[in-house]
């Protein structure tokens, strides 16, 4: 197998080439009339549209990104602030875990869309309702990832801490928490992406701003170009958040930096 590891330069160049081929091919196909622009506009027109929507006095695209991002982050942070402590408790206590597992199993598979009717009934169409949908789509996943991460903490480390004189609380603070943190963070990265899909669903109804709203409205007006701008904006925003998250990981997990053995 060709298992050569690429250095940074090679990775960037290969990636750029791949992207170029994809975008260039798409542009050509539209220009040479192989693809009807009504169904799939050319990348050049999409980018053009994007710039138009992002500039000017109104800059609706930036406003949309801000609105969607605020909904995602609020729902996501709320589910993290509640889900992580609960997950830690569940990970450490088998009784509580057994008691809560059935409820979690019922709620977890429900997609964000399915929460729209109830959330509209109970919370109307304000921002709280949007936060709630993101929350419901993220919370159980945060719980499960945290519980799992907690249970995976090496028992030997816990014994070592107790052996050195740590009380239960001290063990939680100095061993369980930092021990579970790497897996919790990687789980949270996944949940953040899930939260984005929730917000797009949530903005289908009862919204007047946001990337999801922009896409759904564009559909009403048969504006495929705007749909693609919305989709591209989502990708770029999530990518940016991902990079930020990685930075956070590097900050919180200094012992896991590249080059270190474990």
């Amino acid at each position: 197998m060709d298992e050569k590891q690429l250095n940074l330069w090679q990775t960037v160049i290969m990636g750029a080439l791949g992207l170029l081929v994809f975008v260039g091919g798409w542009e050509l196909l539209v220009r040479c009339d192989f693809i009807d622009p009504y169904f799939l506009p050319a990348p050049s027109s999409v980018l053009n549209r994007m710039l138009t929507m992002a500039s000017g006095p109104e800059a609706i695209l930036l406003e949309d990104i801000k609105m969607s991002a605020s909904r995602v982050l609020t729902g996501f942070l709320t589910s993290t602030l509640i889900g992580v402590p609960f997950g830690l408790i569940m990970g450490m206590n088998s009784h509580i875990r057994a008691a809560l597992n059935p409820i979690i199993s019922i709620i977890r598979p429900l997609p964000a869309l399915s929460w729209i009717p109830l959330s509209m009934l109970w919370l109307g169409i304000d921002e709280q309702q949007k936060y709630a949908i993101v929350f419901m789509g993220s919370f159980t996943s945060v719980l499960v990832y945290t519980t799992d991460a907690t249970m995976r903490v090496d028992q030997a480390l816990i014994l070592a801490a107790r052996n050195l004189g740590a009380s239960h609380l001290q063990t939680i603070r100095y061993v369980v928490l930092p021990g579970a943190l790497p897996n919790i963070l990687s789980g949270l990265k996944v949940v953040l992406a899930i939260a984005w899909t929730c917000v797009i669903s949530a903005e289908m109804v009862g919204a007047n701003s946001g990337l999801g709203f922009r896409i759904w409205t564009a559909k009403e007006w048969s504006d495929t170009g705007q749909v693609l701008v919305g989709m591209l904006s989502i990708s770029l925003t999530v990518l940016l958040l991902d990079i930020l998250f990685r930075g956070l990981e590097r900050l919180l997990l200094p012992w896991q930096r590249e080059g270190r053995r474990t």
Binding site: A156, L157, L159, A160, A161, V175, L181, L253
Partner: peptide, 9 residues
């Protein structure tokens, strides 16, 4: 311990 059990963090 045999596997050291040092706290990696």
């Amino acid at each position: 311990f045999q596997d050291y059990s040092l706290f990696p963090w």
